[in-house]
Structure formats: C-alpha cells, structure tokens
Design a protein around this nucleic acid. Sequence first.
DNA 1: AGATAGTTTAC
RNA 2: GUUGUAAACUAUCU
Length: 448
Amino acid sequence: MQQTLELIPSGHGGTGGCDAMRAEVVSVSQDYESPASDASLMARIAHPSNLKKAFQRVKRNKGAAGIDRMTVDDLFRYLQEHGRQLRQCLLRGLWKPAPVRRVLIPKPDGGERKLGIPTALDRMVQQAIQQVLQAEWEPRFSSYSYGFRPQRSAHQAISQAQSYIKDGYDWVVDIDLSKFFDRVNHDRLMAKLAEHIQDKDVLRLIHRFLKSGVMENGLAKPQTEGVAQGGPLSPVLSNIVLDELDKTLEKRGLRFVRYADDCRVFVKSKKAGERVMASLVKLIEGKMKLKVNRTKSAVDRAWKRAFLGYSFTRDGRKTLAAKSCKRFKDKVRQLTRKGGRSLEQRLEGLNRYLQGWKNYFREIETCTEFEHFDCWIRRRLRSLLWYQWKRSPKRYKELRKQGISDKLTRQTVASGKGHWRMSRSPALHMALPNSWFDGLGLIRLLAA
DNA sequence: AGATAGTTTAC
RNA sequence: GUUGUAAACUAUCU
C-alpha cells in the first residue's frame, strides 16, 4: 500500500558498469515497523569510512562479476561517479539488491555446491553491513562458537574440544545440518535480527538481500528460504541463526563446540549422548526449522570422528585426520612428480604448498606422524636430486651455483642460516639452502 | 604497523 | 569458468 522509491543500478551496458543509476517507482510492502527507530545503525553502515573499507575488501578478494557483469575494476570507476548516490540510497533505505548469479562448483567430497554470486556493488553493500553487524553481535555470541568469527580459528575450536575430552567427556554428539545455508528460515532469521536491531531500514535492507532472487536463464527466481552462499553477509547471518542453538546448549550446561554448522557436544556416556542427540534434533527440526542430516550425524567415541581436519587419539592427542592426510600426500606426490618442470620449479612448488600446512602441522601431537611425513618427503626429494645428478651432471652443477652446495655438511637446524644436508650415497653429498626447505625445517623442528 | 603478492586449512 | 567469511603462514614494499 505504500509507495517507495527504489534505486536500481542498471549496469548491464556493453562498456561496463558505469551507467547512471536510475530511480524507479516500485511498490513495496511495509513488513518491518518498529516504533521509535534508532537510525544510527544505517548511518554506521553508510559511513564513508565503512564503505571504503567494504570496497577495499571486495577489491582485495578479486571476485568475479555478478549478474550485471560489473567487475571489481569497474566498481572503482562506478563509485567515483556514483558513490554519493549509493550512500544516499542506503541512508534513505532505498537500496534494491540485484538477483544473484548461480554458479555450481564441485565440492571436495564429490557433491556440488550452489553458489549465489551477488553483483560487485551488492557485495560491497553486504560487506558494509557485515562489518557493522559483526561488531554488533560479536559480544553476544557464545564463546564456544568458532566459525566465521574474528580472532577465532579452527585450531582454537579443536583445542576446546580436546580439553573436553581430557576432562573425561569422550563421547561426542556430532550434529550435521544438511544444506544449512540453503535452508535458513527467513522469518526466523529476521525475528532474530529484530531482537537487537531497531533500525527498520537496516532490517528491510537485509530482508531484501534475502529475497533478492536467483537469476536462472534470464529470469529472476524468487527465494523463499536460505541465504546466498557467496555473499559477504551470509557467514555472520548463519552465526546469528545458530546462536539460538549455542544459547540453549549453554543454558543446559553442556560442553560443546560449534564451527559454522558443525556442532559437537561432549558428554561422558553413550546414554547421555543419545539423550542429548534426541533433544537437539527436536530443537533444530522443530523450533529452528532446520534439517538434521541423520546419516552424517552420530553419537560416538570422540576419537572415532574427525573434526575440522583433525582427529583425536584415544588418549586425547591431536592427529591429522585420515582424509586430510591422504589429500596432503596426493598433492605432494603430484608436486614432486617429474613432468616438464625443472627441479627448482618442483622444489619451489613443494615448498609453497608446504608452507600452507605449517600451521596445521604445528598442532599435531603425535610424533610418529611427523617422522613419517618428514622421512617420506625427504625420500621423494632425494630421489629427485639423485635423478637430476645422474641425468645431467652439467645441469646439476648449474643448480649448485644457484644454491645447492656440497660444501656445507654441518646441520644447524635451529638457526635460520643452517643448511640441510642431503645424501643419497657416500658419493653424493649436497646441501640445500634452508630457504628451500623452510617448510620441512619446521616439521623437523616440531617433531623434536 | 600499514599495504601488496603468494600458500594452506575450516565451514 | 569459482563466491564468501575467518585463521595461519611466506615473501616483498613504504
């Protein structure tokens, strides 16, 4: 019944996204009325410095274009011309998000993941909201929730779980929510938001983001449930929805950890676990209107279930989960395989890959695993070098000039300047500069 | 301490 | 072609 102005960016022209915004009169139902609204939230979202930060983040991510084909490079030029307009739109509650672009990407476990990619412009607006919303909710979130939160990592979640196990709570209730992002109930989410947000412009804006459809062959399909997987706002919204779960778990005095939709409760007996499981399924599927994936959920001994890439031993030490271990080995095999690439290229690639795992290995508490990896990688490398020497001693000599040297045989592991000695046989003695083996060096150090 | 470029993991 | 948040790491620049 109420007429509102909505500004729609019409950036689908041939040359890029610098077209002017045009105002359109669209009728909009007034769903969120709150008395005496405090408009400061929207002011914070649309604050120039917040918008600037949002833009920089979108730019840094180097994401692809949305439905309007506007790339992040175009975004800058667009903002130069229409930045003020954008700000005014937000402040007056007139921003209308465009539908998201549907992209399917393969999941590591074989399935497909549905992505909804918003316009670069919409990503920036979502990011601006996210920054404010996250700051707003951060103090309210449970301290046992670890996913998508600043200053919190999967490792901390693991350590928390570990401390439960060490206290004797070694039965775990593992709840897997099926397609969580796709099934978030809009009404429930909006209700949760309205509990703490007074500003109805902000609520309406978020509501519009939820309802902005998916573009499927030419026409926008409206969305009735779920948050677009791919929007900067989605993660924090998921935490807001699942905060209810955290709060009830806390109220019941249960030991739990949650990382996004991966929720685990630690108890002392199987019976207690089954009781908790039953009541949680009831809560999640009843009140929260979500779906529990029964085939992937279970109550089991803590060391039987991998968690965030790790698993536990019977005495509560952290190990690399079998799946992660396999992925790691496969990748190292692929990187050290001879195939067109020179020795240095392979070493470089290997080292680069290894450095990404540093943090992971640091957490592992089973020494045998370290030794195993260390030996395994070294064996592969030795054969690589040996092969190089045998095939062309000339080429090997060139490599020596670049860094491989057989002069240094002393191992000084602790100082950053030491060299690793590599030897295949008494005839071949060589050492590589530590910079080539930083990843390995660390593994070695930590194993000790 | 701020930015840039790269890598990995988790969901 | 591939989005997002968060953590960690390496390198470089001022």
